[in-house]
Simulated scan of single mutants.
Amino acid sequence: MRERPPFKTLFAVPLHCEGCINSVKNALSRVEGILNVNCYLEQQLIEVEGTAAPSKISASLRETGKDCILRGSGSPNSAAVCILEAHAPNLENTVRGLARLVEVGPDFTIVDISLKGLKPGIYQASIQQNGDISRGAASTGGVWEEDTRGNEARGKLGQVQVSNEGSGSIILDASIAIWELIGRSMVISPSAELLHQDDEATLVGVIARSAGVWENDKIVCSCSGKTVWEERVEQTGKGML
């Protein structure tokens, strides 16, 4: 396994005073892989450098009692995100997972997957050939490069263990570049062979490019007029992690 190079991640966090900053720094000091933390009180931003996955940093920040919003990861054109949803009919809060992807070196991408609201068990994570999710996983074209590489297909990412509480997470290192993934889809399925378009245990989403560090300075959405924190409340209400 290759050594993971350090990269930067930027979070918006409600910071009101130096006490908030000290609380955040103390929490992050206990996260393995974090090398440096810079806090910007006026902008209410925290920049973290190291090898720790974004989900680990987010969880540590929330343990302080503060919410956080990821505003960027890695260098320009090196990050992507995938919102994972169930496509079975008549479901509420279909969002069941989130995958964050950060390219930290040549053909070296971290895949950070978090799931919730699923039945316990082992789930297969894979990159699919295309981004057509009109019929759920059934229209995504199969596993990326499976036909040409067989069991070595780069699209087969690995397995995620979902606990009895319905949550699961995994952090994978993949020999993939971000540009190869944009517009494809990701599928999380309880079966590596059969993908069912109406199976509520199968999740699917399109991989989209996301901002690098300091590339996203949006405070208010130009479409809705809502602040990023108002959008955050709305998203969490829909099941977003």
Rank of each mutant, 00 (worst) to 15 (best):
E3K: 15
R4L: 15
R4K: 15
F7L: 14
K8P: 05
T9W: 06
F11G: 15
L15M: 14
L15A: 12
H16I: 15
E18S: 11
E18F: 11
E18Y: 10
E18V: 11
G19P: 03
G19H: 12
G19Y: 11
G19Q: 12
C20Y: 00
C20H: 00
C20M: 02
N22Q: 15
N22C: 13
S23A: 13
K25W: 08
A27K: 12
S29Y: 13
S29L: 15
R30L: 14
R30K: 14
G33K: 10
V37G: 07
N38A: 11
L41I: 14
E42P: 01
Q43C: 04
E49S: 13
E49D: 10
G50N: 04
A52G: 12
P54H: 13
P54T: 13
S55C: 05
S55V: 01
S58E: 13
S60R: 09
R62H: 07
I69G: 08
L70K: 15
L70E: 13
G72I: 08
G72M: 10
S73M: 14
S73P: 01
G74P: 09
A79P: 06
A80H: 06
C82P: 06
I83Q: 00
I83K: 00
I83V: 00
I83G: 00
P89T: 05
P89Q: 05
N90W: 09
V95S: 03
R96T: 07
L98F: 09
V102K: 08
V102R: 09
V102T: 13
P106T: 07
D107I: 07
T109S: 08
V111T: 14
V111M: 08
V111Q: 10
L115V: 05
L115K: 08
L118N: 04
K119A: 14
G121V: 07
G121P: 04
I122R: 10
S126F: 01
I127A: 00
Q128L: 07
Q128Y: 03
G131N: 11
R135T: 12
R135E: 15
G136E: 06
G136A: 04
G136M: 06
A137K: 04
A137I: 06
A137T: 06
A137Q: 04
S139C: 11
T140F: 05
G142N: 02
W144G: 02
E145L: 13
R149Q: 11
G150T: 07
N151D: 07
N151E: 10
E152A: 09
A153T: 04
V160I: 12
V162M: 03
V162G: 01
V162F: 03
E165V: 05
S167M: 03
D173E: 11
A174Q: 08
I176W: 08
I176E: 05
A177S: 11
W179I: 05
E180H: 03
L181S: 01
I182W: 01
I182P: 02
I182R: 01
G183W: 02
R184V: 05
M186E: 03
A192I: 08
E193L: 13
L194K: 13
A201E: 15
A201P: 07
G205Y: 03
A208S: 14
R209T: 03
R209L: 03
W214D: 14
I219H: 04
G225W: 02
G225Q: 03
T227I: 01
V228G: 00
V228I: 10
E230G: 00
E231A: 01
R232Q: 07
V233T: 02
V233P: 00
E234A: 11
E234W: 04
E234M: 04
T236N: 02
T236D: 00
G237H: 06
M240T: 01
